[in-house]
């Protein structure tokens, strides 16, 4: 099977790899680039465990072919926080017990990151609607919603402080 030369910007770094056009983005990230933060849950674009940020959009990387993302800018959970690892969202998920088994968490946080970029002051209803592409089997979502609302106010407070 002929392979293609895939060039991407992943978590701020230019990367290149050989892969088949049919390979799914989630497999490129996990198997070829060793970014195992995004997970595979349902494989039919329902669960969102594989969510990554692509060119400023939250996408389900199990439903995107490698060939389609040639030249794209991808951010995974591994690229969301600074070198210390724990950004505002990560800390807020921890503080509000927004995770249990942790399997959905990378997708959740990656999606929440984009949601807050687009809507920095969401209501609880907007968070629930905006996070509806990500399934969690453990938490019942209540603490995830709480964590995201809290992160929003933290991020807004630090923005105000910076001004």
């Amino acid at each position: 099977m002929s392979k293609m030369h895939l060039k991407l910007k992943v978590n701020g770094k230019s990367v290149e790899t050989l892969c088949e056009p049919r390979e799914l983005l989630i497999h490129v990230l996990r198997e070829r680039l060793n970014l195992t933060g995004p997970h595979i849950g349902c494989e039919t674009s329902h669960c969102g465990a594989c969510t990554v940020d692509m060119n400023g959009m939250s996408v389900k990387s199990c439903t995107v072919f490698a060939a389609q993302v040639q030249g794209a800018e991808i951010t995974t959970i591994e690229g969301l926080a600074g070198p210390d690892g724990m950004g505002v969202l990560q800390t807020s998920f921890r503080e509000h017990h927004g995770l249990q088994c942790g399997y959905c968490t990378p997708g959740m946080i990656t999606r929440a990151h984009r949601l807050l970029q687009e809507n920095p002051n969401p209501t609880e209803e907007e968070v629930r609607f905006g996070m509806a592409g990500n399934l969690c089997r453990c938490t019942g979502y209540q603490n995830i919603v709480k964590a995201i609302l809290h992160a929003a106010s933290e991020l807004n407070a630090s923005k105000e402080a910076a001004q």
């Binding site: 674009s45 969102g48 959009m57 939250s58 996408v59 439903t63 999606r111 905006g130 592409g133």
Partner: peptide, 9 residues
């Protein structure tokens, strides 16, 4: 239609 991620693409 669908969910936020699906609507982006």
């Amino acid at each position: 239609i669908a969910d936020p991620q699906v609507r982006y693409l």
